[in-house]
Design a protein around this nucleic acid. Structure first.
Lengths: 166, 166
DNA sequence: ACCTGAACACCGTTCAAGT
DNA sequence: ACCTGAACACCGTTCAAGT
């Protein structure tokens, strides 16, 4: 998984992996049918933690809906270990239907959760869903936008989003 | 370039390319130093059209700033040929510093252009820049978000963004 | 100026054989 | 139950040789 996060799915190869573990590459095929099967297993592993992880981060923000929201958009989101992994998987999803499906599931769960927060803040359901999508799209965008000074998604940016949304 | 758009940079390989062109793979090395040099040339080709292309699309929207803005966020943006190519390059940029640099340059030019549109709409410069970034991040996000019904960035979504921004 | 053909290295995959 | 070793295919790269 750390290899995926650092260098993308195409770097997750059988021979380098085997070498790193001090075994021959032949032994890999005892554990997995082939390289694709390893990739599929990694996808499942990520599915298992991705939703849980982001919701846990929000709930650590305390009981108020607004405070939780602020956690979602902490600018560390795209930089940390989890952020690197998530962008790697989204890049992967762009060329792989199985990965795309898992990402779609995660997106739906997260959006449902965040939309509920907005409803708790007194926004009507329809607008809450639209604004959740805006927020979420900007968040994903910040994962993929250039890490330049120009587009740096700094605190003022997220403050402005919050101001517009609530 | 169409191979890059359809299957990502890792599918842009010497041997399949040579076969497709009906020559031996050895001849490739007359035209390019190596595979990396081909990739670099592709990046330059994209740099040459990316800004021009998006600004041309906007200007086709007529003289009013607001009407131009609407063009930017036409939902076809992420689906068309250019959209596929752009997402492929952003995925690539995630694992490649050279690609990341070109993407950063493109982002800066586009943001400067769109921020100017917002200023023309009477928004003060600082807020215009912030809101341009929000709009732009959401746009990039829509390129990478799951193509599920749930997160479909439909017309109402962009209408809501316009409502919030102007 | 451009291409071929052969060689070598790297890695995915298979499989018979080992412990 | 897990691993090795050898074999083969695919592709990147080099280079001497051809036209």
């Amino acid at each position: 998984m750390s290899l995926l996060a650092r260098e993308g799915i195409d770097a997750v190869r059988v021979e380098p992996l085997a070498e790193r573990l001090g075994v021959t590459k032949g032994s890999f095929y005892w554990h997995f049918k082939d390289r694709a099967a390893l990739h599929a297993a990694m996808l499942e592993a990520w599915r298992g933690v991705a939703t849980y992880e982001i919701i846990a981060r929000l709930e650590a923000g305390g009981p108020s809906a607004e405070e939780r929201l602020r956690r979602l958009i902490e600018p560390t989101a795209s930089r940390g270990k989890a952020g690197r992994l998530e962008t790697a998987i989204r890049s992967w999803a762009h060329n792989d239907a199985a990965a795309a499906k898992v990402v779609a599931g995660i997106d739906e769960e997260r959006i449902a959760y965040v939309a509920q927060l907005l409803r708790e803040m007194g926004i009507d359901p329809e607008t809450a869903l639209l604004r959740t999508k805006i927020l979420y799209l900007a968040l994903i965008g910040s994962f993929f936008a250039a890490q330049s000074d120009q587009l740096q998604a700094g605190p003022e940016l997220w403050k402005e989003i919050m101001r517009l949304i609530k």
